[in-house]
Design a binder for these strands. Structure first.
Length: 572
RNA sequence: GCGCCCAUAGCUCAGCCGGAUAGAGCAUCGGACUUCUAAUCCGACGGUCGGGGGUUCGAAUCCCUCUGGGCGCGCCA
């Protein structure tokens, strides 16, 4: 099974080498989708100057030397238009159908650490956490599918000064009542109550501060209370994960507390080696190239003047652990865009320290802020908090309303409602580029028309319906595939691009490109569906061919949606 | 003050390793159901790609500048 773009790129490269010499064999042929052909190569124009020849002439020479399974045409200032032969496309599509991996190549295995979700137990969990969770989980699925060894890391906020008041509040409430509230997802209420007492009750804040000290010292009774608090909170996180179909497990939790014991050593080591220096009593790294006010070097503070540690220290300890112990080749942080400066300084400091070697790729997949319908930063305000589980339930309820009049039984309807509701919410998060801001809008994310999860799910349901009605098995179709109608040809060409898109999504950590591809694929299919009767095809050959195209589409859509973490119901 | 990000159709967004008349969804308007699920499809309407300058055969894309937003900038995480 070969990717058309790859075949064409190699064809052009061979032509370049044959025409201009072997040093041009590695030249990027600049293959792009074309409105006048299947693809076009733009390399003739970029090469013209270097070769000292007219662009059109270069294009002609390429065309003269090219050997591809299709036709070549030169147009415009020097575009090389490439059109693949129908027979070749049909044969490739048949191969793709026979290929378990649908043309997705397995890459040389790397160990990829992906840091995502990471809700903070001492802060309100909000819709922004949904996004890093959903995007991170999609990246995990893509990397695993590409053959990499993926290590999920859920870097929970589970340590630090706020836990003093959280533990004291637990004592005030009583353990059972506190656990019930926390695991029910009422963390906001709990946190706000603790905060209010901390701010308004001097006796309470005194106790809370004292509790921080015993927590830092890992006093057994304090640790017991901390565990009670965290276990209840994690139970709530797991409810959200389960409901969403997120692959995070308890063993993926590697919260801040995990690194607590290493912080002193991290600071000592950096100070000893002169990488960190004291400044106004605080221990700081000043990575080169970062300046702030007055053009002064920006500090990456790893120990406060009172001896306490912040998240900079923890993050350094974490990066060291991931490289040295987890043997990461690549570390992906799926974290809010507002942290961009911190992440840059973290990477720079870790490189300085030698804990992040050049061979290890560290990337910050910036998650854009979640905005309210007013266009401002979405934040839960007192009394107006949106509980995540309720939000997910509302998604399901809205989806259920749409299938309410279907003749399915109760259980089937519930399954559909779940898949469609979660699919809608997740797809909304995934289909816009991860770093752009995201306007939170119930109606839009739950809309069942247009570029949405449900539209894609619906396409798969219609395909299954064809097979059900005709009593065929998608797994049994073999073709051969014939591309007589333009809609069939367009669909085949579209399907063959699957492998390229998946590897691109992995390389660039950009799941929205997979969404765009799947949407285009579903569109190509519905056009085919409208124009090319499958069961009522004019001939047995056409019927078998169209069944094969439908089966291939079904598998590509299902696989693609699975990589995004979106389930497909059998029927809708 | 300094740094980063953003500005594309009425709305929500793609496109940004430079390439042909800038795309999609929603909305609006007009068509298509005795037909494999019409939750669909086809068509129309709609943009000085925030302004200006530059590089280039060619700029939404690269560089400079201005305007308007957002975020961050030493003891929260």
């Amino acid at each position: 099974m070969t990717d058309p773009q790859l075949v064409l790129a190699e064809g052009v490269q061979r032509a370049l080498a044959a025409a201009f010499g072997p040093e041009y064999a590695a030249e990027d042929p600049l293959i792009r989708p074309s409105q006048f052909a299947d693809y076009q190569a733009n390399v003739a124009m970029s090469l013209a100057r270097r070769l000292g020849r007219a662009p059109r002439e270069v294009a002609q020479v390429i065309a003269d030397h090219i050997d591809i399974p299709g036709t070549v045409q030169i147009s415009g200032p020097g575009f090389v238009n490439l059109t693949l032969a129908d027979g070749w496309l049909a044969a490739q599509a048949a191969e793709q159908l026979a290929d378990e991996r649908l043309g997705v190549a397995t890459e040389a295995q790397q160990t990829v650490v992906i840091d995502y979700s990471a809700p903070n137990a001492a802060k309100e969990m909000h819709v922004g956490h949904l996004r890093t969770t959903v995007v991170g989980d999609a990246l995990v699925r893509v990397q695993e599918h590409l053959g990499h060894h993926v290590i999920r890391q859920n870097h929970l906020g589970d340590w630090g000064t706020p836990f003093g008041m959280l533990i004291e509040h637990l004592l005030d409430m009583g353990e059972e009542a506190a656990v019930a509230q926390l695991s029910a997802g009422e963390g906001n209420v709990y946190y706000q109550a603790a905060r209010a007492k901390f701010d308004g009750d001097p006796d309470f804040s005194k106790r809370a501060k004292a509790r921080v000290v015993t927590l830092q010292a890992e006093d057994p009774e304090t640790m017991r209370l901390w565990h009670i608090f965290m276990n209840a909170t994690i139970r709530y996180f797991n409810k959200v994960y389960t409901q969403l179909g997120v692959t995070l497990r308890d063993e993926d939790i590697a919260g801040e507390s995990r690194y607590n014991a290493m912080l002193g050593q991290v600071c000592d080591d950096l100070q000893k080696r002169g990488i960190a220096v004291l400044s106004d009593g605080a221990l700081c790294v000043f990575p080169p190239g970062f300046t702030g006010r007055e053009n002064l070097p920006l500090p990456f503070m790893i120990r406060k003047s009172d001896g306490g540690y912040g998240y900079a220290t923890t993050d350094l300890a974490t990066i060291r652990h991931r490289v040295q112990d987890l043997k990461a080749d690549r570390i992906t942080y799926v974290i809010g865009a507002t942290q961009a400066l911190h992440m840059q300084m973290l990477f720079a400091s870790a490189r300085l320290a030698g804990w992040l070697p050049d061979e290890v790729r560290a990337e910050h997949v910036q998650i854009g802020s979640v905005l309210g319908s007013d266009g401002k930063m979405f934040k839960t305000r007192a009394g107006k908090s949106i509980k995540l589980l309720e939000l997910l339930e509302e998604g399901e309820a809205r989806a259920a309303a749409v299938v309410a009049d279907r003749a399915y039984d109760e259980a089937t309807r519930a399954e559909i409602a779940h898949a469609v509701g979660m699919g809608a919410i997740k797809y909304a998060d995934l289909s816009v580029s991860h770093d752009s801001e995201y306007v939170f809008d119930f109606d839009r994310m739950l809309a069942l028309t247009g570029n949405t999860g449900p539209y894609l799910q619906y396409a798969t349901a219609r395909i299954r319906s064809i097979f059900r009605r005709g009593e065929y098995d998608p797994a049994e179709t073999r073709g051969p595939i014939l591309l007589g109608h333009p809609a069939e040809r367009a669909l085949a060409l579209q399907l063959l691009g699957f492998g390229a898109v998946v590897s691109e999504v992995g390389a660039a950590s950009a799941p929205h490109r997979l969404c765009a591809y799947l949407f285009d694929t579903a569109s190509a299919f519905t056009t085919f569906y409208d124009n090319c009767p499958v069961l009522k095809a004019g001939s047995e050959e056409d019927r078998q061919s169209r069944l094969a195209l439908a089966a291939l589409t079904l598998r590509v859509l299902t696989q693609g949606l699975d990589l995004l973490g979106i389930e497909v119901p059998e029927r809708m």
